[in-house]
Design a protein around this nucleic acid. Structure first.
Length: 418
RNA sequence: CGGGGCGUAGCUCAGCCUGGUAGAGCACCUGGUUUGGGACCAGGGGGUCGUAGGUUCAAAUCCUAUCGCCCCGACCA
């Protein structure tokens, strides 16, 4: 891809309405733009990151045995009356009427829709278990949207719902999803901690939140010495000590990027979602639900991976793994070499951003720092005269001169580790 | 919803107190010179000062209302 042909409107200055670093950097790097409070457009670079995160989520959810579906965003009032949440949910539930004065809401979550689907389609124990997930736009009319993608009103969420024959099977699935979540956030390059949490409005009995630890986090979490488990404010032991080791728990700020719930039969009771067991007896389906904030995961990655010059994307979710920067105009040997290197990498299946803009070296290098693409190939005049180009990792900073002839091979080794 | 703040060019902001022909830097367009860390010269385009009403000879500036946005608090992926 050529920088000059993509819509990447980078900003030199920090927009005045952005407070947290991820919001600032997403705006400055041309990933997102705000349309209204808590409502954002994703530009090409931002969408690329979102899609990388989604790809990881899909792979791990599929590996955990879940199937992808897509439910409606708009749902009728009646469904929400059945679960009693039309009254309970409050003003975050955005409600409206259609031309026939029938009442609807925008989905803030989809237990109702999925349970309705499953109760209509599942009759027999032979059809269970089922785990169904979707990646979809949600709308929650938050009292105070803030921090860019971190707390939008409209946001992309992966939500998964599991349906099991009994409690034991549901608990097993719960832990399988828990492990899938660990893999997802690990693959996204995040440092995170699973946190024992209360179940809040969605209801249920067992729950973990996955928190990315960052100073800007909205939640306080209490983490064990080993850092392998935490407790939310409403679940932390009174003495604030690790129940296993007795050592004190440390307080951190966390960004909740995912949560897993064991729901039990709350929704299957409300919706009479039942199946017939081998004896022909009617039984309630046992449910779980599992959410990941996709945009928030991307924002959290920035909160955790940035420096004073810009983003330091983890390789797995970077908009591009590598950028090639010729320091010279279109007629120069630098530009020629850069184009050839780009071409060779692309033929090898690597996504490359070629900075073909006519701007000065300073502009290109500063923008490259801002965008945070993990690997950078700089083709400079002195280097090219010696038959060399430079390979630099955004995070490390060390510049490695590499022979022109072997640069493709070397970049490939960095960008797709076996 | 309670408390605080802000709406002036694409972005960052000055001007408002003390009313008198709308500004700067960056960005953008044209031509030229430039290319290792946000270049230079010359020319140029762009704003009914959030909106509506009021006061006044005269309003970005004073008054009233309204809308939007940001921050702090209660709610949440």
């Amino acid at each position: 891809m050529k920088f000059s042909e993509m819509l990447i409107p980078t900003l030199r200055e920090v927009p005045s309405d952005a407070e947290v670093i991820s919001h600032q950097l997403m705006l400055r790097s041309g990933m997102i733009r705000k349309l209204a409070a808590g409502i954002y457009s994703y530009l090409p670079l931002g969408l690329r990151v979102i899609q990388k995160v989604e790809k990881i989520i899909r792979e791990e959810m599929n590996a955990a045995g879940a199937q992808e579906v897509l439910l409606p965003i708009v749902m009728p009032k009646e469904l929400w009356i059945e679960s009693k949440r039309w009254e309970v949910y409050g003003k975050e539930l955005l409600r409206f009427k259609d031309r026939h004065e029938r009442e609807f809401c925008f989905g803030p979550t989809h237990e109702e829709a999925i349970t309705d689907l499953v109760r209509n389609e599942v009759r027999s124990y032979r059809q269970l278990p089922q785990s169904l997930y979707q990646i979809q736009t949600k709308f929650r009319d938050e009292i105070r949207p803030r921090f860019g993608l971190m707390r939008g009103r409209e946001f992309i969420m992966k939500d998964c719902y599991s349906f099991e024959r009994d409690e034991d099977a549901a608990i097993k699935t719960y832990w399988r999803m828990y492990e899938a979540y660990r893999k997802i956030f690990t693959r996204c390059g995040l440092t995170f901690v699973p946190v024992q949490a209360g179940t809040g409005e969605i209801g249920g009995t067992l729950s973990h939140e996955f928190h990315v630890l960052a100073k800007s986090g909205e939640d306080e979490v209490f983490v064990t010495e080993a850092g392998d488990l935490g407790y939310s404010v409403d679940k932390v032991p009174a003495d604030k000590k690790d129940p296993k080791t007795g050592s004190p728990l440390k307080s951190y700020r966390g960004i909740e990027v995912g949560q897993v719930f064991h729901l039990g039969t709350k929704y299957s009771e409300a919706f009479h979602a039942v199946y017939l067991d081998p004896e022909g007896k009617e039984k309630l389906i046992v449910m779980g639900c599992y959410g990941i904030g996709v945009g928030r995961t991307a924002a959290a990655a920035i909160e955790q991976n940035h420096d004073d010059k810009g983003i330091l994307w983890p390789l797995a979710i970077a908009p591009f793994p590598v950028t090639v920067i010729p320091l010279g105009g279109p007629e120069t040997p630098m530009f020629q070499a850069a184009a050839e290197i780009t071409d060779a990498l692309q033929k090898a299946g690597v996504e490359v951003l070629l900075d073909d803009r006519p701007d000065t070296a300073g502009v290109k290098l500063n923008d490259a720092d801002l965008l945070g693409i993990p690997w950078r190939v700089v083709v400079g005049k002195k280097g090219i005269e010696k038959g060399e180009v430079e390979v630099k990792e955004r995070k490390g900073g060390a510049v490695t001169p590499v022979a022109r002839a072997s640069v493709v091979e070397q970049v490939l080794a960095k960008v797709r580790p076996a």
